[in-house]
């Protein structure tokens, strides 16, 4: 699995999962086991290098941290 930074486009702009430091302040921190099924699939898809994800397929919010094999920050760009 490619754990590198991942960008994607969707109709509210692109979403990026960026490896981050756990001490970075975040509005929300979730482990992948807490994600709704659609969001889990979206996160895994982004980490696999997918480039397009529909906005209704996740509930990720700007700045939140996702705990997976690394810590990832969600950002829109």
């Amino acid at each position: 699995m490619n754990m590198a930074t991942s960008d994607t486009n969707h109709d509210q702009g692109s979403i990026r999962l960026r490896q981050t430091n756990a001490s970075t302040p975040a509005p929300r921190v979730r482990h992948v086991d807490q994600l709704p099924e659609e969001t889990l699939t979206t996160v895994l898809t982004l980490l696999e290098g997918e480039t397009r994800v529909a906005s209704n397929e996740h509930d990720l919010i700007e700045g939140e941290t996702i705990v997976f094999t690394d810590y990832y920050t969600v950002s829109r760009s």
Binding site: M1, H31, V32, D33, V67, F68, T69
Partner: peptide
């Protein structure tokens, strides 16, 4: 149920 402690998921 996930284990995320290692380099692989």
């Amino acid at each position: 149920y996930s284990i995320t402690h290692f380099d692989f998921p």
